[in-house]
Amino acid sequence: MRSHSPGNQNRPKFRVSVLAVAVAATLAGCELGGTDDVGSSSGTGSDSARSIGGGGVKGPLADAVVKVYQVDYSAAGFKGSLLATGSTDAAAAIQGLSLPIPLNPPYVMEFTSDANTTDITTGAAPVISTMRTVITQALLDSGEQIYATPLTTMATDLAIKNADSAAPYSGNGDGAVTQAEFLAALPVAASQVTSTLGFGVDSSIDIFDTPPLINDTTDSAEEQRATATYRTAVEALTAVVYEMEQHSTGDSNAVLSELANDLADGAIDGSVDGNPSSVIGNSAL
């Protein structure tokens, strides 16, 4: 962890107070509201394509655009060739999205919002309009629905940034990311995100695999508790990002991305790659 100058030593205390206010407001909203029940069958297959089910959840996003890219370790954001495009329906479930056979994961799946996209929890435009996650062979084999959230977005970005790094990652530092390094980086990045900005998410919860809303696969009390905890963290992080946006030079998407860049060294302290963040100002922390 980077050492702090005397002027920075008070900043974590202020940051905690801001987060606490945002979380309290979010939890109050959750207690007043109901639980979303967005049903969607898991991915099914044919001889030529494999359909993908799931959604994008800040609140569940209706009428969002969904794209799946082949992972390319030399491309920006590891987004290589565009393989499939779909959308979410009025209930925020993915529709019309199929991957070509033979499958060749991993893939980056990204949700973007346009003028027609609605957060069905609030009935308004989404606070965070771009979210992504990674589709692995393990996820495809599980048959589970696949979701992107602000937490998976941060974890994906963090894994991309740190995959070639040494401990706690498994990279060899040669400047070239391999599939093995990237896949090994995903759970490490997810753990860093949830331990820093997970707001009580248990370490046993896999944010890439756990649905952030009740669906037809959350049929046990334990699964529903995990979903409720995860969803609370999603809403809390979104509230924090929105609050930080008011004191930053970028929009909520830029703030979320910069938080991942900031966390890359293990601490959110307003510095990215050793330099002050150009997006998140001191007043936002």
Rank of each mutant, 00 (worst) to 15 (best):
P126W: 12
T130S: 11
A159L: 04
A159E: 00
L158S: 01
A148V: 06
Q145D: 14
I120P: 09
L139C: 04
L140K: 11
T122F: 10
Q137A: 13
A125S: 15
V134L: 01
P168M: 01
I160H: 00
D141Q: 12
M154V: 07
Y169G: 05
I120T: 14
T152A: 03
A138G: 12
T117N: 13
V134P: 00
I135T: 05
V127T: 15
Q137M: 06
A155E: 00
A124N: 15
K161L: 14
Y147A: 04
L139W: 08
D174M: 02
D164Q: 05
T152R: 02
V127I: 15
T133E: 08
T149K: 02
R132M: 14
R132L: 14
K161S: 11
L139I: 11
Q137F: 02
G171L: 03
D174S: 08
V127A: 15
K161C: 01
D141L: 04
T133I: 08
N162V: 12
L151C: 03
L158Q: 00
I160T: 06
A148W: 06
S165Y: 01
Y169E: 09
D141V: 02
E144R: 14
A148I: 01
S142K: 12
Y147P: 04
L140E: 07
A166R: 07
T136M: 11
M154I: 06
T133C: 12
Y169C: 05
I128G: 07
G123R: 08
T121Y: 14
T118D: 09
V134A: 05
V127C: 07
P168S: 00
T149P: 02
I146D: 07
T152L: 04
T156V: 01
G143Q: 13
D119C: 10
I146H: 07
D157A: 10
G173P: 08
D157P: 02
A163K: 04
A124F: 14
S165M: 00
T122Y: 07
K161R: 14
T122H: 10
N116I: 01
G171T: 05
N162G: 06
N116E: 12
N172G: 05
Y147T: 00
S129P: 00
L151H: 04
S129E: 10
P126S: 11
T130G: 01
D141F: 00
A159I: 04
V134H: 05
A124S: 15
P168W: 03
T152H: 05
A125F: 10
A163N: 05
S129Q: 09
T122E: 10
N172L: 02
I128Q: 06
M131S: 08
Y147N: 06
S129I: 03
Q145N: 15
T156W: 02
Q137G: 10
T133P: 11
A163W: 05
L139S: 15
T156F: 08
T156G: 00
S142T: 11
T130H: 00
M131Y: 03
R132C: 10
A155D: 03
P126D: 09
P168G: 01
T130M: 06
L140R: 11
M131N: 01
Y147F: 15
Y169N: 10
A159F: 03
T136K: 13
Q137R: 12
L139K: 13
P126Q: 10
L140W: 11
T130Q: 10
L139G: 13
G173N: 12
